[in-house]
Structures are given as structure tokens and as C-alpha cells.
Amino acid sequence: MHLSAPLYRLKREARLLSREAGIPLAAALDRIAAREGHARWSLLAQRVAERSPAALIHPRFRPGEMILVAARPGQGKTLLALELALAAMKAGNRAAVFTLEYVEREVEARLERLGARGALKDLLALDCSDEICSARIMERLQGCAPGTLAVIDYLQILDQRRDTPNLQTQVAELSAFARRSGAVLVFVSQVDRSYDPALKPLPDLADLRLPNPLDLSLFDRAVFLQAGRLRVVQCGGEGK
């Protein structure tokens, strides 16, 4: 299935159409879906979900892995991380989202739009506290089953509080916890503003925004996004 633009951009078009045409968002979404060859937005979203990057990437994760999902703003990195949480739940695992960027109702609304309803919703834990740090994450995940997937949104914000250990220490603690517990930890990460897509189609590890030192070998894989394209790399290894 080929779309004229990534799904998140089609949603933006629908929101703009809704405002300009004075029609409900649901009607605008259906108009965009019709243009893409589907009778309703729900059918288009279902087809996309079946072929989504998250559905393809998640089965490659192994218990205990540390994952980076990185991009410049507006490229869909948080969306992909939430889709990975949903993929984990669909596979029968529990999931957790720790975010310092969004309030609870925003995350719940985004997950519901992705299909996290009913029994699936019961598999999710959500933490939007200002106290999020490695210690809190490990405490909330204590006793989790192998394969539990936790999204941390986002990596750099763990480095902003003066009353918590530095980023290197926190990530090292979380890496050791992931190995012990079998949890999969997915860190949403910023890409530095110096990254220029005109010079390089996709960012890489060298483009991560890291104000303070961080040993990237603590991560197993990194997923980079730009303009609807995606690349998975082994940290310190060749692209896959």
C-alpha cells in the first residue's frame, strides 16, 4: 500500500481541512482516506497498522534490550514509540509509558486513537510524574515479566534535574535493570539541530543531541526517522 504521505502528515492535512472547511475532524479524515483509495479513515488506519514499522520492528526486539527512537521534531518518533508499546500489548506483553512531555489525557487519547482500548488498555501503565528518573522507572517496573516494553519520553529530559544522578549513571542503571528483568526499554531521543537532511537523508548516532557524555554502547539498537523514512541500526554496528 502506497500513501501520498506518511500517516502522521495525512492526519495534519485532515486537521487543517477540518478547520478550513468547517467540518468535523472525522469527516475530514474520511475525505483524506477517500483520496488515498479507502472508503473510511478507520480502514486506512487499519491497513497502515498491519504494515506499520512498529509491527515489523517489535518482533526483532529481545528481552533486556535498550532501544533508541530518534528524530528531529515532527518526524513521528513519539508516535512510533507508542506504536511499539501497542505492538507489545498485542503480543500479550504489558507496556508502560513514562513521559515528562505530555499529560495523562494526551497520552491516553493518542493511544486510544492507535487502538489501545478494552483489554489492551488494561495492559498499560502510564506515568506522567515530574519525578520520573531511573530510580522511579525501576521501582514502577519492579517484578515485570520479560518482554514488558517501557517507553521513556524522552532521553535528554532525564538529564535536567540536579537532584538526580547524571544521564550516564541513570542510563547505566536502566541498562542493568533491563538485563536483569528482561524488560525492553525504548527511549525517545532528540536529534541535534545541526543535522541537515539535505546532506544526509537520515540521522545517525553522531547526530544525537547529548549535552553531557553518554556511552551509546549501553543501547542495543537505534531507530532513526526522517521524512517518512526509517532506519534501524545496531549501536556501534552496521545498519540492518
Rank of each mutant, 00 (worst) to 15 (best):
residue 16 L to G: 06
residue 168 Q to W: 10
residue 88 A to G: 13
residue 234 Q to F: 08
residue 20 E to F: 06
residue 205 L to A: 06
residue 68 L to M: 08
residue 154 Y to E: 12
residue 152 I to P: 12
residue 132 I to K: 11
residue 44 L to M: 13
residue 25 L to W: 06
residue 235 C to P: 02
residue 143 G to V: 12
residue 234 Q to M: 08
residue 116 A to M: 15
residue 102 Y to F: 09
residue 82 L to R: 04
residue 161 R to T: 07
residue 100 L to H: 06
residue 104 E to C: 03
residue 9 R to I: 15
residue 138 M to N: 05
residue 8 Y to I: 13
residue 212 N to F: 10
residue 145 A to M: 13
residue 73 P to C: 00
residue 202 L to Q: 09
residue 107 V to K: 01
residue 7 L to S: 03
residue 147 G to S: 07
residue 113 R to I: 04
residue 42 S to L: 10
residue 27 A to Y: 10
residue 4 S to V: 01
residue 159 D to K: 06
residue 168 Q to H: 13
residue 132 I to L: 14
residue 226 Q to D: 07
residue 120 L to Q: 07
residue 43 L to P: 02
residue 192 D to F: 04
residue 14 A to L: 11
residue 41 W to Q: 07
residue 233 V to F: 00
residue 106 E to N: 00
residue 2 H to N: 15
residue 157 I to S: 12
residue 166 N to R: 14
residue 187 F to T: 07
residue 130 D to E: 13
residue 211 P to C: 00
residue 158 L to N: 12
residue 237 G to K: 05
residue 217 S to L: 11
residue 83 E to M: 04
residue 63 P to M: 12
residue 34 A to Q: 15
residue 146 P to H: 07
residue 223 V to E: 01
residue 94 R to E: 15
residue 236 G to V: 01
residue 128 C to S: 12
residue 123 L to W: 11
residue 234 Q to V: 10
residue 188 V to E: 07
residue 86 L to M: 04
residue 20 E to G: 04
residue 101 E to Q: 13
residue 224 F to C: 01
residue 123 L to T: 10
residue 89 M to V: 10
residue 234 Q to Y: 05
residue 44 L to R: 06
residue 41 W to R: 06
residue 111 L to C: 05
residue 35 R to W: 06
residue 91 A to L: 08
residue 48 V to L: 06
residue 232 V to D: 08
residue 173 E to V: 00
residue 190 Q to K: 05
residue 107 V to A: 07
residue 44 L to Q: 09
residue 236 G to M: 03
residue 132 I to C: 12
residue 193 R to T: 01
residue 94 R to P: 01
residue 38 H to D: 02
residue 50 E to L: 13
residue 170 Q to H: 13
residue 230 L to S: 01
residue 148 T to I: 06
residue 156 Q to E: 14
residue 77 K to W: 03
residue 223 V to R: 00
residue 179 R to M: 12
residue 94 R to Q: 15
residue 57 I to W: 07
residue 72 R to I: 00
residue 76 G to V: 01
residue 143 G to N: 13
residue 79 L to C: 04
residue 220 D to F: 04
residue 75 Q to S: 02
residue 34 A to M: 10
residue 207 D to R: 04
residue 185 L to K: 10
residue 213 P to E: 08
residue 77 K to A: 09
residue 35 R to D: 08
residue 89 M to S: 02
residue 84 L to K: 01
residue 43 L to K: 06
residue 14 A to R: 07
residue 146 P to K: 07
residue 219 F to S: 05
residue 34 A to E: 14
residue 177 F to S: 11
residue 69 V to R: 08
